[in-house]
Simulated assay, not measured.
Amino acid sequence: MLMHALESGVLVLTLDDDPGPTVQTTLAALISDLVHVHAPTPVVIVLGAAAAAAPPVIDAVLRAHRMCSQSDVLMSVATPSAPARRALETQATAHGAGLVIHARTDTAITTAYAAAA
């Protein structure tokens, strides 16, 4: 389901598969727990194409972004899915939160590391 690793001083959370509609709260809680344990380390959430297409995943990522913003933890998202990037951008903007969204994981990690340095 959700994998995590530290890469170049950045907490990378990876979700490749669609976890299903019933895990939105669980996914948001897992992300929150990992962010709290590693704070103030910047976070990049990487969504595979299958995960990025799931509305509950988008909602969980946006919840995590709000939590990170409140905790002053830098968070961004990387996904190859253009529709998911558009959905994340639209919903984040509607909630007044600037979420940085990348198409490539390596770019997201490098950018997060540089921004936190």
Rank of each mutant, 00 (worst) to 15 (best):
P56L: 04
H65L: 07
L27H: 10
G96D: 05
V61N: 01
I45Y: 04
Y113N: 14
L13I: 10
A97G: 11
D16L: 13
I101T: 03
P19G: 05
D59R: 11
A51D: 01
A103N: 11
G96V: 04
H65K: 14
A64Y: 00
S69F: 12
A103C: 05
R86L: 06
A29Q: 12
V37D: 08
G96L: 05
T41P: 00
R66G: 14
M1T: 12
T14E: 14
V10I: 10
A50E: 15
M67Q: 12
A78L: 03
G48T: 13
D16M: 10
L15W: 02
T25P: 00
L13D: 07
D17G: 02
V61E: 02
V23R: 14
A51T: 09
S71Y: 05
A108Y: 04
L27F: 06
R66T: 09
A112S: 06
V43Y: 02
R85E: 09
V12P: 02
A108E: 05
V44R: 02
A114R: 15
Q70I: 13
P56T: 01
R104H: 14
P21T: 09
L88S: 04
D59C: 06
T111F: 07
T14Y: 07
I45L: 14
A39W: 02
L30F: 02
P55R: 06
I45G: 01
P42R: 01
M67D: 07
S76I: 00
A28S: 15
Q70Y: 08
L30N: 03
S81H: 07
V10H: 02
M1F: 13
A117P: 12
V73S: 05
L99H: 04
G96Y: 01
A103T: 12
A39H: 15
A114M: 06
I31F: 11
Q91Y: 12
A28E: 01
V100P: 05
L30W: 13
E7Y: 00
H36L: 13
I58R: 00
V12C: 10
Y113S: 15
Q91T: 13
A94Q: 15
A117S: 12
Q70M: 14
R63T: 09
V57R: 03
T111D: 13
R85W: 06
L62A: 01
A5H: 06
G9T: 03
H95N: 13
T25N: 11
T90R: 15
A54M: 02
A78N: 02
L34R: 10
A52C: 07
P40Q: 02
C68L: 06
Q70A: 15
H38Y: 10
Q91F: 12
P83Y: 09
T41Y: 00
V35R: 11
V77L: 13
I45T: 11
L99E: 12
L2R: 06
H4G: 05
L27S: 00
A49G: 03
V12Q: 00
I101P: 06
A54Q: 03
T110Q: 13
P42S: 09
P80Y: 02
T105Q: 09
L88V: 05
H38D: 04
L27T: 04
P55S: 03
A5F: 04
T25E: 15
Q70L: 14
V77Q: 01
A82N: 08
T110C: 05
P42Q: 04
A64D: 03
Q91R: 15
A82V: 14
H102G: 04
T79A: 07
P21I: 13
A112G: 07
A51C: 12
A108H: 03
A52R: 08
S69D: 11
Q24Y: 06
I45R: 08
A64E: 09
V77A: 06
L6N: 09
